[in-house]
Design a protein around this nucleic acid. Structure first.
Length: 300
DNA sequence: AGCGGTCAAGTTGAT
DNA sequence: ATCAACTTGACCGCT
């Protein structure tokens, strides 16, 4: 049994998540307007959209939804940082998110997060790490409310010495709150950290590996796809989570990491059909259209 | 309505 | 040196 996951947004469905820029908020504020009133509108919209997203995913047999990092836009920006309770509708929004957690549970839609590329826990720069921690804590506060069990990040930079960079990841992990720690996962990327690089970190910290088979094909290591899959499965103390995508220009191109609008069924590792229940996030630009086509071709 | 310029942030590698 | 890529183009402001 494979639970398919939709990432962040929709192509055809009228479900929109809004965002804001710090520059606009600044100009807004200079005109004497309250930026938090503006943000309040956006967050109200996003909370409503999350409910619609869960209901829609459930209606098409998609069992997981990744919430975009701009769910509360600008919330960790130095000039405008805020949390839900700082917004005019704060209490209402918190109550609504708790209802959404129950809805997701009832509809069996798993919720996840994937913080942005700027969240780097292993940087040699203290300020970068501090910002990463703040961002992870922001994600965890929403995750706690809506019942999301995954906050997935990459290993970070290599800095010419991956071993000491990973040691820094381990050290900085200690500074995270329990609510981040119990949700944090790491994913192999297409440039620096392979599954084989990350497995020792996962074992050391007791955190799961999100196995991205596309990235593994872009950046290989000594592990076969079967070995990486099995090793990743062992790191999970809950339903495992994997990623799939297809290369935009094909596997012969020199730019294999670009994502295609759809999933080529041949990119799905056949042996994944016979492993236990897991979540498979589909990273395809055509979103729900791609997932519907993929689901049909997989006959699940 | 359509379009061009802009957007907070880190790191890497292609050009 | 510049810039695209990454989980994601969306948004404002002008015509």
């Amino acid at each position: 049994m494979i639970r398919l996951g939709l990432c962040c947004k929709f192509i055809d469905q009228p479900i929109k998540f809004r965002t804001a820029t710090a520059n606009y908020l600044k100009r807004h504020k200079e005109k004497g307007e309250d930026p938090y009133v503006y943000l309040n509108d956006i967050v109200n919209n996003n909370v409503d959209s999350l409910e619609k997203a869960i209901l829609y995913c459930h209606s098409i047999g998609v069992g997981s939804f990744r919430i975009g990092s701009d769910f509360l836009p600008i919330s960790t920006h130095p000039d405008f940082h805020y949390t839900l309770k700082d917004l005019p509708d704060g209490s209402k929004l918190i109550a609504k998110l708790k209802e959404i957690a129950l809805l997701a549970k009832e509809k069996n839609v798993r919720l996840t997060f994937h913080p942005s590329q700027f969240v780097i826990l292993n940087s040699p720069k203290d300020d970068v790490v501090e910002k990463a921690i703040a961002d992870l804590e922001y994600h965890a506060s929403i995750a706690e409310l809506v019942g999301a069990d995954v906050i997935n990040i990459h290993g970070g930079g290599g800095y010419g010495d991956k071993l000491s960079a990973l040691a820094r990841f381990e050290e900085n992990f200690k500074h995270l709150s329990p609510k981040v720690k119990k949700r944090l996962t790491v994913e192999n990327d297409d440039k620096i950290y392979t599954p084989n690089d990350l497995l020792p970190l996962c074992k050391q910290l007791n955190i799961p590996l999100v196995y991205d088979v596309h990235h593994h094909r872009c950046l290989k290591d000594i592990l076969t796809e079967e070995q990486a899959t099995n090793a990743a499965l062992e790191t999970w103390n809950r339903e495992p989570l994997f990623h799939i995508s297809s290369p935009l220009y094909g596997w012969d191109s020199n730019k294999t990491h670009h994502h295609h609008d759809y999933i080529d069924i041949n990119d799905f590792p056949k042996f994944w059909k016979s492993i236990g229940p897991f979540t498979l996030e589909v990273e395809a630009k055509a979103k729900e259209l791609a997932i519907l086509k993929f689901k049909k071709e997989l006959s699940i």
